[in-house]
Every structure is written in structure tokens, then in C-alpha cells.
Write a protein that binds this DNA or RNA. Structure first.
Lengths: 207, 207
DNA sequence: CAGCAAACAAACCTACCAGTAGGATTTTTT
DNA sequence: AAAAAATCCTACTGGTAGGTTTGTTTGCTG
């Protein structure tokens, strides 16, 4: 990794510029010229830090994943009930998608999977893991119907969230994403949460 | 449109080849050379029928949409109850995605929206319309909880289906798509269908 | 001040790509 | 069978892309 502060800074600006460009135009739609022009950096400087376009893309993906991990860790550390935690994670991640170029690039590059030569090992799996964990916890505490197959539900929640993101991007440029995610939870929870459990609040703002 | 049979045939093979290529590699990932090589046709012949890459892509999208319309019309003409119709449409469309290159290309090109210069007017809307219609019908017949906001539900169903498709592609190349869609319905219907209504069957095969 | 990391600059290379031009061939029309 | 129209073919063009090379300059650090 870079050994000077200045280097770290340029690396970061390149990464950010790449994030913006990839988020807007996708991997193949973005040229290296787009990126280093946007970053205000020369070609040489860029290639000093990232040896290829793919490597740069993967760096963006990783940076996005780290932000995801932070969100998950923070929410898990809170003292909310498990279902509430899951909802919080989804909505906080949704608002990250709305605002952070790196995160937007992350989700777009992941959806585009297959345009790269190597392929990332299943990027949805970690989210499913987290969801499964929390759902299982909720079920044990009687806050989720016992008849529900936790794994299947986790799978569905991740897919439904992904779909909300895709459709929201296409129709409103992510503007209505948080609303869509809240909508998802309202429709889902009707059938899955036993009567008499506490109402779940969608407390905004999240950032 | 072509005036000779021979021409119609080459047009069709080009369209099919383009569908396969776009489905596999996306719009920007596909070169015209990919397409006419796959079709076993020369460049000139291709450009006689389609004057640009974008036009070809839009032709593929249209062809896919037509197949979608056929599915919808066929199911609407059946005598199943409205919710069952909606489920049938979703599952039949899912199996089209699994098997038909043109349909696969259609969904991929639509998700990629934004890589083209012109943009298709909201491609999810027609599906939402159909869903709304059927859900409203179901609600009036007492086969759907009265408290449900039909428009919000339709919106969610379309997004959730789209998500299932995206995730299924990334993880299994569409192999588990039908299963995922069935899973979606099972989880959704629990809370939305009043007690005592007929059980809904996922009768396969659909083709 | 010596040595190395970082950044700049510009020319360069190779591959590929969308699209075009104009001629050849096939089919239809007269 | 001749003319006209539709279809198809080959070679070519202009441009862009990712990435390399070479050489120079700036800044940090010991």
C-alpha cells in the first residue's frame, strides 16, 4: 500500500472518481480516460496505483463491501430486536446506495458480473448469511412465525432488496429506493410476524 | 420489413444470434462481429437488416416484449382466479427466461438501461399494470386482504421478481429461477390471502 | 545530499470496433 | 429475357480503447 500521505490521497481520489464513473456508466461504458480526467490525475499516476481497469473495479467493489460491513457491524452492535436490526440494515444500506458513489458503483458492478474475466464468488451470500442469522434469532424469540423456512426467507429478502434497487434505479435514479424498501417490509411482515408483537418503526433519517 | 422469404430467414437468424450474444455478454460486451459470426452471416447482410447496433438491440427488446404479451394474453384468457393468473404469468415468464435467448436478452438489456443513447420508457410499468389489474380483481372478490394497497403490492411484486431474476442469474445462471419465484409467492401469500381461500398450485411443467 | 516513491507528460503500440462504399448476386417484375 | 429491385458480400475507413514505454520532475526520508 502507499507509503506517503500524498499517495494515499491520490489513490483515494482515483478510487472515488472510478466509483462515480462506474456507477454512472458501468464497467464497459467507462473508459480509463473518463476516470483519470475526472480525478484530475494523469494516466501514469493512475496506472501506478492500479495496474488494470479490472483491478480498479475490484478495488471499488472491495471498498463498497467494507462500507457494507461497517453498516452491518454497527447495527448488530445495537440493542434492537433481531427483526428490527435486519430492517435497519436494509434501510441504512439503501440510503448509502442513494448517496455514496462507491456504494452505487459496488451494487452496479456486482449486478454486471460476467463482464469481467475473473468472477467474484457470490456477492449476495454474505447478505444472506446476515439475514439468516437475524431471522433465526427472531424465530427463536417468537418474533417470527415458526412455520417459516428461515433460509428461504433470507434468500427472498436479499433478492427482493436487489430488485427494489434495480427498479428504483431505472425509474427514479434511486430517489424512491428507501420508500420501496419500507414498502417491502410492510408487505412482508403482515404474514410473517405473529400477532401481538411490537410494531416496527421506520425511523428516519438514517445518516 | 423484408419482402423475401430468404431475407426474413436471415433477419430471424440474426435476431436470434443477437439475442444469444446480448444475453451472454450484454450490450457493450457484445461486438457486431460476435453477432454476425454466430449467425453465420456477413457484416453486409446484417447491416442491410439493422442499420446500427442499437437498433438491433431494440429489435431484440421488442421481440422479447411480444413474447411477454403472448404469455400475458394467454393466461388472462384462462378461467383461473385472478391471483392464480398472476402467479401463472410470473412462473411462465420465469421459465421463458430460463430457456429462450431472446427473452433472456430482453431482461438483460432492460436492466442495462442507460448504456444506450435513447432510453426506453419505463419497461417495468406494463408488468405493474397487469399485476395491479389482477390484484384489484382479487381484492374485489375477497381473495386478497382488503387492507392491502394494491398499487404498492404490484410495485413490490415486479421488483421482487426482477430481483429474483438478477440473483438467480448471478448464482446459478437462471437454473433456480422458477424455484425462487415459487418461493416468493409462498412467502407473500401467507399474509395477504385471507384464511379459507383455495390453495394455490404451482403446476409444472409450463412449456 | 543521496536515494526512492510518486506523479507528470507525451508518444506509442496493438487490437478491435461500429459503420460505410460499391460491387456482385439473387429474386422479382415487366 | 431484360430490367429493376432486393439482398448479400468484401474491403476499407476512421476512431477509440487499454495498456506500455521512456524520460523528466517533484517530494519525502534517512
Amino acid at each position: 500500500m502507499p507509503q506517503q500521505e500524498r499517495a494515499q490521497r491520490t489513490r483515494d481520489t482515483v478510487l472515488r472518481a472510478a466509483g462515480e464513473a462506474f456507477a454512472e456508466k458501468g464497467f464497459l461504458g467507462t473508459s480509463m480516460a473518463d476516470i483519470f480526467a475526472r480525478a484530475g490525475v494523469t494516466k501514469g499516476a493512475l496506472y501506478f496505483h492500479f495496474s488494470s481497469k479490472e483491478e480498479l473495479a475490484f478495488a471499488v467493489i472491495s471498498a463498497g463491501e467494507e462500507l457494507g460491513n461497517v453498516v452491518v457491524q454497527e447495527v448488530l452492535a445495537s440493542d434492537a430486536p433481531p427483526l428490527q436490526k435486519l430492517i435497519d440494515i436494509s434501510i441504512r444500506w439503501a440510503s448509502y446506495i442513494q448517496t455514496d458513489p462507491i456504494v452505487r458503483a459496488n451494487v452496479r458492478l456486482i449486478v454486471e458480473q460476467g463482464t469481467y474475466s475473473r468472477d467474484v464468488p457470490n456477492s449476495y451470500d454474505p447478505w444472506e448469511q446476515v439475514a439468516s442469522l437475524l431471522l433465526k434469532d427472531a424465530q427463536e424469540r417468537g418474533e417470527l412465525e415458526r412455520s417459516v423456512d428461515v433460509k428461504a426467507l433470507a434468500e427472498f429478502i436479499v433478492a427482493a432488496f436487489t430488485g427494489a434497487q434495480i427498479v428504483s434505479y431505472a425509474t427514479s435514479g434511486y430517489k424512491d429506493l428507501v420508500r420501496r424498501v419500507e414498502n417491502m417490509w410492510q408487505l412482508l411482515l403482515v404474514g410473517l410476524v405473529p400477532q401481538g408483537n411490537p410494531i416496527i418503526f421506520f425511523s428516519r433519517p438514517y445518516r
